[in-house]
C-alpha cells in the first residue's frame, strides 16, 4: 500500500468547462447572469417582466433549467423570448456547466448581448457549480422569511446581487425588509440589493437600469450588433 497525494479538485471537470464558457462569453461580449432562488421566489416572473421591458433594446437569450418540465421555457417564449432553451435535468437539483454548454450549441453568441440562466429552484446545490456566468443573482421573496441568508449562507456569499421579490405582499407577512437586508449584508457586504414586485412592477425600473448598465459596461462597442441595440 502506498499513499499518493493526488490533490485533485472534485469539480475540476465542471470548472474546466465553465472556464471555456466564460472565455466564449467574454470574447463575444455577452453578459451572463445565473439566477438562483428557492422554488417559486419568482425567477421566471422576473425574466418575463424583463423580456417585456427590454427584449426590444437588448438582444438576449434565456436558458431555463427545470427538474422535469419545460414549463418555464414555454412561459419565457410566450413573454417574447426569441431565443429560449430548456434544460431538463432529469432529477439533478442544479445545472452544471456541461448542460449549459450543450444548450448553447445552436446559439450565436455574437448576436446577443445578454444571457440569463434560470437555475433549478434550490438554494443549496447550484452554489457549487460555476456556469461561466459574470455573476449569480439570488432572489428571495417576502413570503419565505427574512432569514434565508442565514440558512443558505454559501449562496448569498457567492452571489453579487440580491433581488427581494413580492414586496406587494409585505403587509400580509412578517417579513422585515430591514432584517433581510442586514442578514444578507452580514454574509456578503458587497451585495447590491433590489426590492421589487413582479406582480405590480414596483422597483423594476431600477432593475432594468442596473441591467442595461451592466450589459453596456461588459461590451461598450458591440461590433456584430445592429445600431439600435447599441444602448
Amino acid at each position: 500500500m502506498a499513499r499518493i497525494e493526488i490533490e485533485k479538485k472534485v469539480l475540476s471537470e465542471n470548472e474546466k468547462i465553465a472556464a471555456r464558457l466564460r472565455q466564449q462569453f467574454s470574447s463575444s461580449g455577452v453578459t451572463v447572469l445565473n439566477l438562483v432562488s428557492s422554488p417559486g421566489s419568482g425567477k421566471t416572473s422576473l425574466l418575463e417582466r424583463t423580456l417585456g421591458a427590454l427584449a426590444e433594446v437588448i438582444p438576449m437569450a434565456l436558458v431555463a433549467g427545470d427538474v422535469q418540465t419545460d414549463n418555464d421555457a414555454k412561459r419565457l417564449e410566450a413573454a417574447g423570448g426569441q431565443i429560449v432553451r430548456p434544460i431538463i435535468t432529469g432529477g439533478a437539483c442544479h445545472l452544471d456547466a456541461a448542460m449549459v454548454e450543450k444548450s448553447l450549441t445552436e446559439i450565436d453568441l455574437n448576436q446577443i448581448r445578454l444571457l440569463f440562466i434560470e437555475n433549478v429552484g434550490n438554494l443549496v446545490c447550484p452554489s457549487s457549480y460555476d456556469l461561466g456566468e459574470d455573476q449569480k443573482v439570488v432572489l428571495i421573496s417576502t413570503t419565505e422569511g427574512d432569514d434565508k441568508p442565514q440558512k443558505y449562507p454559501s449562496m448569498f456569499r457567492r452571489s453579487s446581487t440580491l433581488v427581494i421579490n413580492k414586496i406587494d405582499l409585505l403587509d400580509y407577512t412578517d417579513f422585515s425588509m430591514e432584517s433581510a437586508r442586514s442578514n444578507a449584508l452580514s454574509i456578503n457586504g458587497k451585495l447590491s440589493v433590489h426590492e421589487v414586485s413582479c406582480r405590480t412592477g414596483t422597483g423594476l425600473d431600477g432593475w432594468y437600469a442596473w441591467l442595461t448598465e451592466l450589459v453596456a459596461r461588459k461590451n461598450p462597442d458591440p461590433k456584430h450588433i445592429e445600431e439600435n441595440h447599441r444602448l
Partner: peptide, 8 residues
C-alpha cells in the same frame, strides 16, 4: 472540495 490523497 478536493481529493487530497489515495491509498493504493
Amino acid at each position: 472540495l478536493d481529493i487530497s490523497y489515495l491509498e493504493v
